[in-house]
Write a protein that binds this DNA or RNA. Structure first.
Lengths: 207, 207
DNA sequence: TTATTATTTAATAGTATTATTAATCGGATG
DNA sequence: CATCCGATTAATAATACTATTAAATAATAA
């Protein structure tokens, strides 16, 4: 038996469903199609997850949280200068996206078309800013006072960063097609953007 | 008779369909629903447009083109300095998006899930860069040579601009919900972003 | 008015989808 | 071996959707 065949059918369904939902979105992915790709009966998908909604939520609730909680990972950057720390933050955010390149589009789609699901995130989200935001903000204000950074609100800075990092991945499927990029060119372009985003943001912060 | 009732049924169908497609996407909008909102028989939608695909394409082919051809509108900026011209370009691009706030999401969705439609755009697109791109690039290089702008590739600059402008509108439905923004707060935030994007980009270009 | 054409509707074929149910299969346990 | 139970399937109900057709109605021209 194949090593990969060793997984339970339930796990395979989860994996296939995740891939298809990411590729084609919720509405365009049918449980029939999921079953076909898994190689099992369609009823089995419902046997394990009862409803399609359930299956979707099972997969993505955790992912959504992880995605919005990425900011918690920013610890142990210790005694770095604000700008060096910011560079790490931008890069780690970009890397998170790079490891889940299709998540932003899915989140933006599903959340804007099913606003119910947003409430689930709100709770998890409110906890984040208070602590870390104020810490980071203190560091930013210090850097500004020291003349190392131009005057800017932290929220604007964060929005700009998220904006630039997210956008490249949301736009990539279209850019990829229009410019007929192959896999290596695509990778190169993404790496280039990673550096360019850091550069662009840091340059914009010069006093 | 009402002034607005004066329009032909065909036009009403087009308007309703456009609104629904923008709100809910292609897959989640049914011809039945369109007909219901128009207040006519569902068969009538097919009478005028034969297929749902046809209806969608009729509405959006032109819009897609307009969207990508926005760059053509940048004429008559005459003898402005490069940075002033760039400011106008950023703002006009932002305004185009502001007038069609739901288009970016639709374009990104439909194009990434139906790559066939992209070929239609490719042709229209290839004509654009050659002429305007080289002109703009010449101006950028001059500005760099004069020490007014840091060294940067025009393509990176354009990508950064499109990125920042598009992203805010793509992300707005989610942000709006998470932060519970009302209409006026939303408008304020968008206007703020308009200024912030210009500022951010221009600041990043300082030598 | 009558004939002709355009618009609109009712009915329905055909298909796909979600979800449920009952039956079967195969392995574990006694 | 018998049986018990989770895993799986076949069959199908229920629904929704696209598209077509034929009939009805309204508008127009002759």
């Amino acid at each position: 038996m194949d090593i990969k065949t060793e997984q339970s059918t339930e796990k395979i369904i989860l994996e296939v469903a995740e891939r298809l939902f990411l590729e084609k979105g919720f509405a365009m992915t049918s449980t029939t199609e999921i079953a076909k790709e898994v190689g099992c009966n369609q009823a089995l998908v419902h046997y394990y997850f009862r409803t399609k909604d359930n299956l979707f939520n099972t997969i993505f609730e955790q992912k959504f949280k992880d995605f919005f909680q990425w900011i918690f990972e920013i610890k142990s950057t210790g005694e770095l200068e604000f700008l060096d720390k910011l560079k790490l933050i931008i890069e780690s955010h970009f890397d998170l996206l790079m490891n889940n390149p299709k998540m932003p589009a899915l989140i933006l789609n599903e959340l804007s078309r099913k606003p119910e699901q947003i409430s689930m995130l709100k709770d998890k989200l409110e906890a984040i800013p208070v602590k870390l935001f104020s810490e980071l903000n203190a560091e930013l204000q210090t850097a500004i006072a020291q003349g190392k950074v131009r005057k800017i609100d932290l929220i604007d800075l964060i929005v700009s960063m998220i904006t630039m990092n997210v956008a490249i991945f949301v736009m990539m499927p279209v850019v990829e097609n229009i410019l007929s990029l192959d896999e290596s060119k695509k990778k190169f372009m993404i790496q280039h953007r990673r550096a360019e985003n850091v550069d662009f943001i840091l340059k914009s912060l010069r006093p």
